[in-house]
């Protein structure tokens, strides 16, 4: 028995590899999870879009649960996501704030004028510096931030109805309790 068992080693190793490869088929190699989840959200203050003189201070958001949605007028996937954000804006339970990433105020405002504005307020990040602090590497990205100012979830890529219902809404309910 023992003498022939060793000839099965290659087959066994192969099946282990197959298991991983199969699992790998359903993973997205492009998605990089953020190390910031579970950590305090970087504090920043930035001018508010189309509201000259006013600044958005993330420190003022303490005690509130909110979404920070990173978007830009030049980003195609953001347009796909926009209807979902508009839908969310109708409900009072979700406060969505925007971070306009590497964009000009005019172009961003033009998109909002045409498609509607789902945000309570939009901070601008013209040079992408805040984006770097948040580890943004592709737009859109959305952060769920709790009352203590800790990032609880990061969505990379557009929020879909499915993600909204299965992940974000339950999380928000839990955080708001």
């Amino acid at each position: 028995m023992k003498a022939t068992a060793k000839f099965l080693i290659p087959l066994a190793l192969f099946f282990v590899a197959v298991g991983f490869l199969f699992k790998g088929l359903y993973l997205d190699p492009h998605e990089v999870p953020s190390p910031l989840v579970g950590k305090p959200a970087p504090v920043f203050s930035a001018p508010i879009l189309s509201d000259a003189g006013k600044t958005f201070n993330s420190a003022d958001m303490r005690g509130k649960v909110y979404l920070l949605n990173v978007w830009a007028s030049w980003c195609g996937a953001c347009r796909d996501e926009h209807p979902v954000l508009m839908e969310m804006a109708k409900s009072d339970q979700i406060a969505t704030y925007g971070l306009d990433y590497k964009d000009t105020d005019q172009e961003a405002q033009a998109v909002l004028d045409a498609n509607g504005n789902p945000y309570k307020a939009i901070a601008t990040d013209a040079n992408g510096k805040i984006g770097i602090d948040y580890g943004v590497y592709g737009v859109p990205e959305t952060y769920v931030i709790d009352k203590a100012g800790v990032i609880r979830y990061k969505q990379i890529g557009p929020i879909t109805d499915e993600i909204l219902l299965t992940k974000i809404v339950p999380l928000l309910k839990e955080l708001q309790r």
Binding site: T4, P10, L11, F14, F15
Partner: peptide, 17 residues
């Protein structure tokens, strides 16, 4: 392709064993 790998490589290694 994975199924194919299982048949070809798995089969070959089984024959080997």
């Amino acid at each position: 392709i994975l199924l194919y790998l299982v048949v070809v490589i798995g089969g070959a290694l089984l024959l080997f064993a």
